[in-house]
Design a protein around this nucleic acid. Sequence first.
DNA 1: TACATAAATATACTGAGTATAGAAAGCAAG
DNA 2: CTTGCTTTCTATACTCAGTATATTTATGTA
Lengths: 213, 213
Amino acid sequence: MSKSAAERRTRKRLVTRQTISDVATRLFFERGFDHVTIDEIAEAADVGRMTVFNHFPRKEDMFFDREQEMRDVAFAAIQTRDAGTSPIQALGALAHRLIEQPHPSYPLFGGTYLFVETALASESLKARARQMRDDFVRALADVLADAVNRPRDDPDAHLAASLIASVWSVAFTQAHELFGRKRDTNEASRIFLDLIDRGTVGIGAALAGTAYI
Amino acid sequence: MSKSAAERRTRKRLVTRQTISDVATRLFFERGFDHVTIDEIAEAADVGRMTVFNHFPRKEDMFFDREQEMRDVAFAAIQTRDAGTSPIQALGALAHRLIEQPHPSYPLFGGTYLFVETALASESLKARARQMRDDFVRALADVLADAVNRPRDDPDAHLAASLIASVWSVAFTQAHELFGRKRDTNEASRIFLDLIDRGTVGIGAALAGTAYI
DNA sequence: TACATAAATATACTGAGTATAGAAAGCAAG
DNA sequence: CTTGCTTTCTATACTCAGTATATTTATGTA
């Protein structure tokens, strides 16, 4: 049982991490991110205060615990696109696919409502979300440049990446707000795809003549 | 001398504020934002610690002390545009005007190099800059909607505002980086206007058929 | 059993930001 | 000029996130 034994420590570590994350998420949803202290989380999870920081360097990391997954879905769509499909087209197609058959790591509107509202209620969480978006844009610029064999500092790659993030961000925000007003997933999906499609057209025009379109 | 006398208190207050701002800015440039404490600023400005917070609720406010002015330049360009000129066109024209005859409140590249590098070296300052951008996008959406007599929650206004912020942000960042590499203001200006122009075309395509183009 | 390593923890610290009460300065009116 | 009102400034004491460091406890291996 050497393999299982060798992993017990790792398993226990992950259990501790998950416990902290679960307890913290529950408290954040109940009382709002800003009204929960690290001490309370440590107490509720029955661990020492330093253990919390050991697993989550920043308080916000307990809330945004799936950053990487969403990012990977987008990058995979670009990297595994069919020959003859441009990166921009591939991302537009991804949006439609996500609406038709939602990805488990990428839930939309109804499924994210409480999560998004909790995030929007906290300046710290909004700040962290903006930072994540920034990091995403940087990484996306690299992926785009690689995808069409251009240097990573190609200004067009950065323009494309930034515009894509804007379009997705506005589309999601508007769909979320519409869902909040009407509680209608279909209508939210419609405005989401409409904004994505019009944005995609715009990005195509801005990048016309380059390899990204 | 009643008028002058009645304003002495106000004048003194502004002097105190300016002193703090000047001292803080100097320290930030010398040693980096994150390596200057509020206590040091208070000490160097010869005021009490609470006086600093009295004038600048957040540490970052001592660095970004001209947010509003830049915002006003952009909004004025939209609101005072000629009849027959669309908001998007007016902002495109503003970019060219700023390059030809730089606005005192809106210096570009060379004039902002140290300022920008200092901001980029600090996570707190970058976070504040992102927040300012977010606020700007929200306000810009309102100005755009008002300018073409559309409701302020018009999704198109938000799409336009977000795309504009992206384009300007990328254009400025790329120009700044190019200036850092080559120390050539002309080349920086060229890439800035090129990205603005291509972005403007893209925004026009995304918003085709609306009143914003 | 003995040794090595990783995880958890205790303690003490830094620094931004808040709350509050009080001191000092400016100002108006008698 | 002094009395009383308002604004600005300041001192004190706090909260909370995050860091540094050393120590303990649990686990894995020889």
